[in-house]
Each structure stands twice: as C-alpha cells, then as structure tokens.
Design a protein around this nucleic acid. Structure first.
Lengths: 143, 143
DNA sequence: TTTATAAAGGATAAAAATATCTTAAATATC
DNA sequence: GATATTTAAGATATTTTTATCCTTTATAAA
C-alpha cells in the first residue's frame, strides 16, 4: 500500500504531533527511536517534509523538529501525497496509463469505491487525531 | 497498491479468461501484446502462476497458456496473494511488525475497514466476472 | 570567537523490483 | 528421427527503493 518511506513519514509526523511543542524540539535520534526506523533514512524523509512545509526544523544545539499547532491539522492524505505521490488515490489499480470512466480497466468500478473509501478516510484524518491515541496509550508507533 | 508484476498477472489472467478455451491456447507473445507488458518479464510471472496451478501451459507447437473452466472462477484475491503476498490484505498499514487489536498502530481501526473492503471485493471478484467486461468491450486491458 | 550540536545536502552502498537474454526441455509436425 | 515451435529455467542487467556515510551549514552557548 504505502512505501516504507511513507510509513516512516506518517509515524514520525504523528510522533512529533504528540509532543508538547512550545520551545521544545525533538531530535532525529529520538524520532527514529520512537518509531523504530533507520536514522539516516528517516533524516532524508524528514527533509522532504520540511521542504514541503509540513514540518519545521532548526539546526544547532536545542535544534530539532517540531510541528506547530496549525501543522497538526495536516491530513494523512497530504503526507502520502508528498512522499509517495497520489497514484494510490487517483491512479489505475491495474496500471493503465489512461484509465477513466470512458476507458476503464477491468476493475475500474470495483476499485473506485475502494479508492474513494481510502482517500476519504485519509482526507479526514489529521495528525492531531492520531496523536491522541498515542498519547493516551491506546495506539502505538512501533513493534 | 499492487506491484507491476501483480498488475501484469491480473491483466494477463483476465485476458486468458476471455479466450474460447477448448483446444486453443494463447502464446506469451499474444498475451504481452494484449496487455502491453514486457514479454520476458511477463513470462516469469506466468511461470509462477503455472507453478501455483492458477494457469496451465503446454510447450511446443500449438502450445501456450490456458485456463480451464474451473480456473476461471479464481478470485483476484488469490492472484494477488500468489504474486505480492497477502500483506496488502492482512498487514499493518504503517509497517508495525505486530499490529493487532491489542497493540494497534495509529491508523489500525481506520484501516481495518479499508482492508476489509478491499479483501471482500477481491474475494468476490473472479476472472470470469472481469472477462465479461473485456469481451463485451466495456473494459480494457491496456493503454 | 571558539566550540559543540544538530539538521541539510551530497555521495555512495545495498537490497529489491523490474527487465532482458541465453540455453534447456517438451512436444507437434514433417 | 530431424526440425521447428513454445514454455521453463537460469544468468545477468537495469532501475528503483532503501539505507548509510561524510561533509557542510546554521546556531546556541561558553
């Protein structure tokens, strides 16, 4: 479904959203520990998220990553879009270059419902929503 | 969602299911033309499907591939399972090794519905169902 | 202003997926 | 039996994804 990069991205973003914010930032090291991901690879992914303004970073001592209040309203859809692209939401399940109502692949109609279900869910699910479950111990980011 | 190999597999299997059967077989060449896939790579994928008894093949002149009547009842679920494995249906969307009701990832419940939707659809969709749309020109296998 | 810290960026490596090529095996037809 | 045809199998190549390492840049604090 999602690439590893995308899974790390989502888990990392949710993790950062669980933290108090304010003047506190979290380091790459702590993030990759919290979500059990390879540190250097995670760094590359976070760089993309920073460039796309879904995440902010500060270098140097007491530096690290943070997501401001508004940023915590980011939908999971947007993270997937930035890391994996949106073919998962709008592309053809069977890989036809031009798959449409007029020229549908074999499973077009059956998959339309799935894609809409997935996209709808991802569009209505925000980081802060997911962070709640982690903060109260109902949900987990690793193992 | 699915690997390229899996997309080729599904399109190829549907294509073969549109053909009359009987004593007629279809060649690798014709299959990869019909679904617009790289011939040699498609051969490798069909070999897996043959080994798994989802497809039968005969070597030599007038040889080729065919799917007998019963085989056309194969569900798309089974093809995905054989080519990509079933992580798409049962695995954790965020990559947790042990994701369960007791130890759910951040999106566990939201994805449960998606996975069930997808699995249900793939379990109830057969090759012969999909072949109908191709045969009557409603659906397409390429472009 | 020096030093330490932490992310950014670039280069490289390793693994997996995709793709191709060559030879072998099976089988129909002459 | 020889030949031609077609899939199977094995080796190899290419591309993409995942992962690591090293250097640079920014910044806080001594």
């Amino acid at each position: 479904m999602f690439s590893k990069a995308c899974k790390y991205a989502i888990n990392a973003m949710i993790y950062i959203s669980t933290l108090p914010g304010g003047n506190d930032r979290v380091s790459l090291k702590d993030i990759s520990k919290a979500i059990n991901s390879p540190e250097a690879f995670t760094a590359k992914i976070l760089q993309v998220l920073v460039r796309e303004n879904l995440l902010s970073s500060i270098k140097g001592p007491n530096g690290g990553f943070e997501i401001h209040e508004d940023g915590r309203k980011t939908q999971l859809y947007r993270i997937v879009q930035v890391i994996d692209g949106d073919q998962i939401f709008i592309g053809c399940a069977l890989g036809l270059e031009k798959c449409s109502e007029d020229h549908p692949c074999a499973v077009h109609n059956k998959f339309k419902a799935i894609r809409e279900h997935l996209a709808g869910m991802m569009l209505t699910t925000s980081l802060e929503d997911m962070a709640k479950g982690i903060k109260n111990g109902t949900n987990f980011l690793k193992i």
